[in-house]
Nucleic acid binder design. Structure first.
Lengths: 168, 168
DNA sequence: AACAATACGTCAGCTTTGTTGACATTCCAA
DNA sequence: TTGGAATGTCAACAAAGCTGACGTATTGTT
């Protein structure tokens, strides 16, 4: 892998066979399944789905965000998001308030119940992530994030980098 | 990040704030979108979906695999897989042959047309992966794979590791 | 030889989550 | 002030997952 970089053509610092790249592809596939497995299990007991998780996560991250903003981050149609938001609002997990400066906008916040769900899901997912980080070690974590960041679409990287992150 | 591991409690080699872990979670989310974006674009022009891609990928990886085996790897129901396989077989991308030793089994192979589609999808996906690898560098690639592997479910890791991989 | 188990296929029906199209409300700029 | 852009909602449809039931061919066991 890293040390498997056999220089071949000459100037490429990083020669990778098709099989090595393909194995990265399968790693993404299998890992993503593990990544979502724990929250998914919790969600089915509450008659919610992955889409609800995503909405709750990003509302938590950016309290007061508008529907449109969420749309851009999630990359789905507003109709699709609306269905999810409707149930979350009806169930009292999310509050939607008319914008004060622009009344067309709705500002989204988690209620206490919503925040509780967010924490439950996030705890499960963080646990697995943390275990993986520990197993792989600090340098691996840096590499992990570097490759993922390079794999994003340009416009999404923007949303990602914008995240406030404290120490990081 | 990696070097940001501030020892705090004491013995933990890898201290990570919630925000750091959360950022890893978002990285997975955004990166997975990029990861599937290119194949998805190609697939929609051919009236296929991501499910077809997965089937084609794993049949390519393990020519002659059985339906049951594919089921275990993909982690879906046979009804769901069958719907996909039916169209692929009907369209002449996959061949299904009765097993010689056990006639209950069907062995799956890509036809020439199927292999062509596989290559087209795989080329697109490998391109992005390769670019990300180059951008991030060889050590990052090792870390990337280490974290992903640690994030998989145990039984999936088995399928992953089993992959023949030449030099790697 | 009889019977249970396995592998595969299929039908019917449901859920989640994506899509497009049509429409109301609100804001802004000509 | 009026027409167009932006924001959000409702309706209907499609892809792809799911459960449950059933049929058929083959294999293995007793």
């Amino acid at each position: 892998m890293a040390q498997g970089g056999q220089p071949q053509g000459g100037q490429s610092l990083l020669f990778l066979t098709d099989n090595q790249v393909r194995k990265g592809i399968e790693a993404m596939f299998f890992a993503y399944r593990g990544f979502t497995a724990d929250p998914d299990r919790i969600l089915t007991t509450k008659a919610y789905g992955r889409a609800h998780h995503r909405a709750v996560h990003f509302i938590h991250r950016s309290p007061g965000t508008t529907v449109n903003n969420l749309l851009n981050i999630l990359g789905v149609t507003k109709q699709s998001l609306n269905r999810v938001l409707r149930t979350l609002i009806a169930d009292g997990l999310v509050s939607s308030t008319v914008g004060r400066v622009d009344k067309r906008e709705r500002h989204l916040h988690l209620t206490d119940a919503g925040a509780a769900l967010e924490r439950e899901l996030s705890d499960a997912q963080c646990d697995r992530m943390r275990r993986a980080y520990r197993t792989a070690g600090p340098e691996a974590v840096a590499g992990f994030r570097a490759v993922l960041e390079a794999m994003m679409d340009e416009d999404m990287r923007q949303h990602y980098v914008t995240t406030k992150d404290g120490t990081d």
